[in-house]
Design a protein around this nucleic acid. Sequence first.
DNA 1: CTATAAACCTGCTGGC
DNA 2: TGCCAGCAGGTTTATA
Length: 294
Amino acid sequence: MPELPEVQTIVDDLRRKVVHRKIIDLWTDWPKSIKGITPAILKKRIRDSKILDVKRLGKNILITLDRDRALLIHQKMTGHLMVGRWFLKKTRAGWLVTNPIRGPFKDRVNQYVHVIFSLDNGKMLALSDMRKFARVDFGESKYIFSLPAIRKLGLDALDGHLTPAIFEKIIRTRRKSIKQTLMDPTVVAGIGNIYADDILWSIKVHPARPAYTLDRSEIKKLLISARKILKKAIRLRGTSVGDYRDTSGRPGGYGRELLVYRRTGEPCRRCRTPIQRMVLGQRPAHFCPRCQKL
DNA sequence: CTATAAACCTGCTGGC
DNA sequence: TGCCAGCAGGTTTATA
């Protein structure tokens, strides 16, 4: 689900909804969602933690707690964070979580909720994830920031410290394709498959071009375009291709604006040539064979 | 070191 | 209608 704009949307929601709240309980039916420690230990250690802040680190969500501790959540492909009131219900098949949010969810039971933090205002922060790839990590700030996922994170795509000159230096040393380079979180943080395709289409660069072949002006255009597209997607509250939803269960609006992503066979928005699909680094890449020459 | 593949999971889609 | 291969927003780990 989540790339930079989707994660930012979630973080903005969470700042309004859970900052200053206390976590009073923890429930999970998928212990693997929690890294490092058992759910029972996390439950004990997190009780009565006050939420001080919520931030985005690349595609990770950092929830800062009191007593110098923090939660780090990565939603991976199909993870969702939702805030609301749920009810646990025991059935023959196990625990089910009922979800009163109306709208995009097909029914009132969200069978994919696997972790729930109960808050002191009667609401719950729930992690729902159909594919169970999402992970929650907990510990002292020192521990969280020592995690490879954070330590090795490149500069954020929207971070002002990432200047055209620095971006050029990074891009020009990479031998991989420009698309795989853009999607590598240790190079630039936040760009995933959807936005990488749209960004490259917008500057007419073929996704398979080796990164080091881009010249200075192309790299500058790349950075400017990346920021423009990511900011537009944040304004529209993300892309809902598949099942992405915000913390209230509402879809994002960028899906209608997609430039090439998942438009295989459809006409290029510039020249009407049918969009092509190829595979790069095990991921699909979409491009216009006429606008984006190798 | 690099490049590719597999692993982690479930549900949906399309072809036969 | 039914089955099954292939595919999906991401990242880490294994293999060559």
